[in-house]
Amino acid sequence: MLLGIDPLLTADLLHALRAMGHGDAIAIVDANFPATANTRRLVVLPGCDASAMLRAILSVLPVDDFIAHPLTTMQVVGDPDAVPPAVAEFRMIAGEAGMGSVERHEFYRLTREAFAIVQTGDRRLYANVIVTKGVIRA
């Protein structure tokens, strides 16, 4: 345990977050997501939900303010304007950070390009979000 660090941020996850550079992305995905098939670096944390993980990661990771949508979610198949409960919660957690959405296969492509994937035990549908890392200014 470390002071001031959310206990959901394991050593492996903190290592990945620290190793990321500006513009690198990390995906937080639900239990149904095909994570192993879509990444080189996988951190599996089945004991938490995606919202708690997003909150923990955003407590230490700056989001990219050079792009319009540093957070990206997956659109509902057949209803791209729908806002699933998990996505509504992500929006509240993200606050002022811009959030966009893409269709399912584009989301899969983006996760394959991500630095790492964190797979949670979240069983809510569409509990998936990609966060692009920003910079810490002096």
Rank of each mutant, 00 (worst) to 15 (best):
M1G: 14
M1I: 13
L2H: 15
L2A: 15
I5A: 03
I5W: 03
L9P: 01
D12L: 11
L14T: 09
L17V: 01
L17M: 06
R18Y: 14
M20N: 04
D24Q: 02
I26H: 02
F33H: 01
A35K: 04
A35F: 02
T36N: 10
A37W: 01
T39Q: 03
T39V: 05
T39K: 01
R40Y: 12
V44G: 06
L45A: 15
P46Q: 14
G47R: 10
G47K: 07
G47L: 06
C48M: 12
D49N: 15
A52G: 13
A52E: 14
A52Y: 02
M53E: 09
M53W: 06
R55E: 14
R55D: 14
R55Y: 13
R55L: 12
A56R: 01
L58W: 06
S59M: 12
V60I: 15
P62R: 02
V63R: 08
M74G: 10
M74E: 05
D79G: 09
P80D: 05
A82R: 15
P84E: 06
A88F: 05
E89Q: 13
R91N: 04
R91Q: 11
I93H: 00
I93D: 02
G95T: 03
E96I: 06
A97M: 02
A97K: 04
G98P: 01
M99A: 05
M99L: 15
S101Y: 06
S101Q: 14
E103K: 11
E106I: 11
E106G: 02
Y108N: 03
L110S: 00
T111E: 00
T111M: 01
E113F: 07
Q119W: 09
Q119E: 12
T120W: 03
D122G: 07
L125C: 11
Y126D: 00
V129E: 05
G134Y: 00
I136S: 13
